[in-house]
Amino acid sequence: MIEVKNLFFKYNKSHEYAVDGISFDINEGEIFGFLGPNGAGKSTTQKILTGILPVQDGEIYLRKERIEKFNNDYFNAIGVSFEQPNIYGKLTGKENLDFFASMYDYPVQSSSNLLKMVDLDNAANKKAGEYSKGMQQRLVFARSLINRPKILFLDESVSGLDPSNAVLIKEIIKELRKQNTTIFLTTHNMTVADELCDRVAFINSGKIVLIDSPRNLKLRYGRKLVKIEYENDGCLNKEILSLVDDKDKQRIVEITKTKLIETIHSQEATLEDIFIKVTGRELG
């Protein structure tokens, strides 16, 4: 769906590239996670892909066709949910959506349905400036869907939401994938990326250091161990055993047969562990 080749970007006063020759592709209907700490180049890449920043050097292809200039066809096809809740505070939630709906050239979604989808229907006629931050974030997310985008850019759309609303937004994102929407998800929250993304790219200091599916990365970088917690003579015991060593494998069988097991956890690496291992830098 989207292919990026050797993309570079440098801000006016900076000596270093904010985006330093990155290349990647995103398949249609895929959720592609763009992960990295603050200042890694995630938002700059997204701004270039959404036309907010110009393409200084590099190539961007949409369905194999090179984008020379971001035109109305492109803007009619994309949706962007910003990290900052950038809304008109003096307009109501519904007025905000209706205003943005009027910007598109093709039929759009009903603002009422969208507000209902993100659980804001009860606050539809309340001024958006009086919404809580979480409500504003959901409004921005709803706004990004108004034109039924083929490509959706989400910038930290789930981070900062309370657990129940985070679940709600994640379910909507999963539903959009089922409808073949291509999603570019920018986040520094590895748990969200792990749960939602088909593939992730790790970006650090403007460079992509790794691209793969979360499962492959965890298998590649994880330890093949299992941690078992069980009860023995009224005491809680813990053992960490190898999944490849024969002796440990027999021990696992023995424990499962003779002890009362409380928890078993495989010890694969988290995406955060992998990021730190690959870049030597923590996510902030």
Binding site: G51, F75, F82, N86, I87
Partner: peptide
């Protein structure tokens, strides 16, 4: 909000 308008037609 100008940024949000930037990504519309």
């Amino acid at each position: 909000t100008l940024k949000a308008l930037d990504v519309t037609p």
